[in-house]
């Protein structure tokens, strides 16, 4: 039995004039501790899929099971990281990190120490009483990671969390995040349109196509690339091979899509 199971998820968006088919019959399974990437062009429903798994919206059809049980029957927390950090500018870093347990009404007195320990773990010790605008983009995204880990999420959903950062910070943060998540044995889903990022970070890649959003290909990342850190992985010859392969697939999808639109 897999840790996370998506069974024929379909989703439609309704409004007065249209009924848009956003996701079509998506099924896949994720093993515990694995890192999955959903790779695809913009508009292929990646973010919709994440929102469904995060239970922010409920799918029109299909079920999601976690450890064999429908996901809404668990009292678990699911971590969600967005394109930007979305730290609350009027709260201190410490209060930002502590927001999860407070919202979930699970606040215990030891949580301040836990938050400080997590901040230390992400390499930020002397910032607890600072405000988000006093931190750099990379630091803020690390605070956002600490905030997400604060509720011990059973599942981590990453919606292009590195896309707003400059390239160097992005590489450093990828490596850092990858190590952290391995350390904490977190099962994670990353949404991205960056082929390199998907290969460097994941165990499995699902290539998605648009109109309607569906899984086009399942691409396992070769064993010896998986076990490297993202920065090392980018140097591996098989990384480049895989990059080319995915690049061609995505171009092909693009031309098919263009042709169908004409």
């Amino acid at each position: 039995m897999s840790y996370l199971e998506l069974a024929s998820i379909s989703h439609y968006y309704f409004n007065e004039k249209h009924c848009t088919h956003a996701l079509d019959n998506i099924s896949f399974q994720v093993e515990k501790g694995h890192f999955i990437s959903l790779l695809g062009p913009s508009g292929c429903g990646k973010t919709t899929l994440l929102s469904i798994i995060a239970q922010l919206i409920s799918p029109t059809e299909g079920t999601i099971k976690l450890k064999g049980l429908p996901i809404d029957q668990h009292n678990i927390s699911i971590g969600y990281m967005l394109q930007q950090d979305y730290l609350f500018p009027w709260k201190t870093i410490l209060d930002n990190v502590c927001i999860g347990p407070k919202i979930r009404r699970e606040w215990v007195t030891g949580d301040y120490d836990k938050a400080k320990a997590l901040l230390a773990k992400v390499g930020l010790t002397d910032v607890v009483n600072k405000y988000p605008d006093q931190l750099s983009g990379g630091m803020r995204q690390r605070v956002a990671l600490a905030r997400t880990l604060m509720t011990d999420p059973a599942l981590l959903l990453l919606d292009e969390p590195f896309s707003a950062l400059d390239f160097q910070t992005k590489l450093i943060l990828e490596a850092f995040m990858s190590a952290m998540l391995k350390d904490y044995q977190k099962t994670s889903l990353l949404v991205t349109h960056d082929i390199g990022e998907a290969i460097a970070m994941s165990d499995d890649i699902f290539l998605m196509r648009a109109n309607p959003g569906s899984i086009h290909l399942h691409i396992p990342v070769p064993e010896h690339v998986r076990n490297l850190s993202p920065i090392e992985a980018r140097k591996h010859p098989e990384y480049h091979q895989l990059f080319d392969q995915i690049w061609k697939e995505m171009n092909q999808l693009d031309t098919e899509n263009d042709a169908s639109l004409v």
Binding site: L56, S77, I99, R104
Partner: peptide, 10 residues
């Protein structure tokens, strides 16, 4: 997106 952050914590 601030709401999305809060909603992800329920």
């Amino acid at each position: 997106n601030y709401i999305k952050v809060l909603q992800s914590f329920g």
